[in-house]
């Protein structure tokens, strides 16, 4: 049998726990950026100005069909070529935030499109301003259908944070790599990283599923 050393596991646990905190922080920060930027992308695609909606549409498509890891390298290395030095954290947050913003913009679009046309017409006939129409009528109804997709991408961004290790963000994978090369043992650190991911992503997904049911009920949908 292979040799799994429990004392080594206990020895490296504190470092991995600390790195887990940074991984969660990276995921939440990235998701925050993605949520705001994604809304901007989604609304920009709904404007009638072809000079705005067409380029944004193409940009979102481009981001969605190219690898995140390459985008991370792009953001990190292209800056210095033009004299803008970005340290790993900001570069990583920009790349991962932008990537997930394009995913979330699609989720938002789907949510907004699922609001029946009559709702828009009713808001217009009550002479609500566009802002009030969005805030009070459309967005509250767009949230329940978008919630499932948003939840999936929250778990998704968490699982993509290991890619930030390539530019030196000291999250879980990066920490596991350095532990591995310090002690010449990869079995325990890599396995533990896998287990930590499972321990966080499975319960999160379950909680999100329950929340979705609750939100639907609150909104009077099914």
């Amino acid at each position: 049998m292979f040799d799994w050393r429990w004392e080594f596991v206990w020895q490296i646990t504190p470092r991995l726990v600390e790195a887990t905190g940074r991984t969660i922080l990276a995921a939440l920060l990235g998701y925050g950026i993605a949520m705001v930027l994604g809304l901007f992308f989604a609304l920009a695609q709904r404007t009638r100005f072809k000079l705005v909606n067409k380029p944004i549409r193409e940009f979102v498509e481009f981001i969605r069909s190219t690898p995140l890891i390459l985008q991370i390298f792009f953001v990190f290395y292209v800056g210095p070529q033009f004299g803008v030095m970005l340290s790993p954290w900001p570069a990583g947050m920009i790349a991962i935030g932008l990537h997930y913003a394009s995913y979330l913009s699609e989720v938002y679009r789907g949510g907004i499109d699922s609001v029946p046309k009559g709702q828009w017409e009713a808001a217009t006939s009550l002479s609500l301003s566009p802002t009030r129409t969005y805030y009070r009528v459309i967005i509250p109804q767009a949230i329940p259908p978008a919630f499932a997709g948003m939840g999936n991408y929250l778990v998704g961004i968490f699982k993509d944070t290991p890619m930030l290790s390539v530019i030196g963000v000291a999250e879980l994978m990066h920490t596991a790599n350095s532990i591995g090369s310090e002690h010449y043992r990869f079995l325990e650190p890599y396995t533990m990283v896998g287990v930590i991911f499972l321990l966080i992503s499975l319960p999160t997904a379950a909680v999100l599923r329950k929340a979705e049911v609750k939100i639907r009920r609150k909104m009077g949908l099914r």
């Binding site: 292979f2 699982k159 993509d160 944070t161 290991p162 890619m163 290790s165 994978m173 591995g180 990869f186 079995l187 890599y190 396995t191 990283v193 896998g194 991911f197 499972l198 992503s201 499975l202 997904a205």
Partner: peptide
Amino acid sequence: VEIFRGTSLLVQIYWIFFVLPLF
């Protein structure tokens, strides 16, 4: 399905490449 969807692809690649040889 739960294991492979619950962890990162990068972790899986490293695990298969660096840890499986130990088995």
